[in-house]
Amino acid sequence: MSTAVATIDTTRPAIPLSRLVKVELRKMFDTRSGFWLMMSIGIVATIATIACIIFVPNDNLEYSVFGTAIGVPFAILLPVVAILSVTGEWSQRTGLITFTLLPHRGQVILAKAIAAILVAVVSMIFSFAVGALGNVIGSALNGVDTTWDVSLADMLYIVLANILGLMVGFMLGVLIRNSAGAIVAYFVYSFVIPGIFGFLAATQDWFEKIQPWIDFNDAQTPLFDGGPSGEQWAQIGTSSLIWFIIPLTLGVMAVLKSEVK
């Protein structure tokens, strides 16, 4: 052996974040389950549009009706996409390769978050387009005037609400790191907890007063209702601290320290 033995080159360019985002986007679609999860969002949106045309009374056929019908399946399924993107690394043990190729786990998590938000934004645009198409066709078929009752600002609020929902799913994925567990936790968060909080608010005065400040679901309602006021923005902020920022911070800290097996 000569002294020119190959050694580690620390001057090579690091892996750029943009490349990681591309890889993470690809990973969301490249399995059969991932592909059909994304497809099902599109299929459900189309079915919801058709159902609106058929079943909604003619004088109620407005763009907002389509938006709501399509928005619900998105709100339910998009967080699952985000959850699986994170938990798969543990549940399927692909993290063994992912975190070996990039030993900075924070960057992988960041890339996943960006990829999930990109998917959310693109699918929301898709849903608005399908809804618009449904609105035009529906009103033509039923011989009524096409009503555009959703402004661009409303759309942006809805996109934001969906991103917040998606990020809660993402947070649960990071925190729990198990596909089934995180999905169950997400459904508890979005279907069980609002019921409990609603009951509490109805029976306890003190809780009703603080609920908007601590209930992330409740605080987001103005986003679907023409946009929050200054105080309501503050309520989104404080409740996100409890339901998103603090648990996400704990989850990321655990991911950075935990053992990948």
Binding site: R12, A14, D30, T100
Partner: peptide, 29 residues
């Protein structure tokens, strides 16, 4: 490795090939 901690190797896959568990793969890919 080569005097460097693994975490400090840029793009480590191009310098160290690692196989830790051949079964740790997404079965659907």
């Amino acid at each position: 490795v080569g005097g460097v901690l693994y975490q400090d190797i840029p793009n480590p896959g191009t310098q160290i090939g690692v196989l830790l568990d051949a079964s740790a793969q997404h079965a659907g890919r």
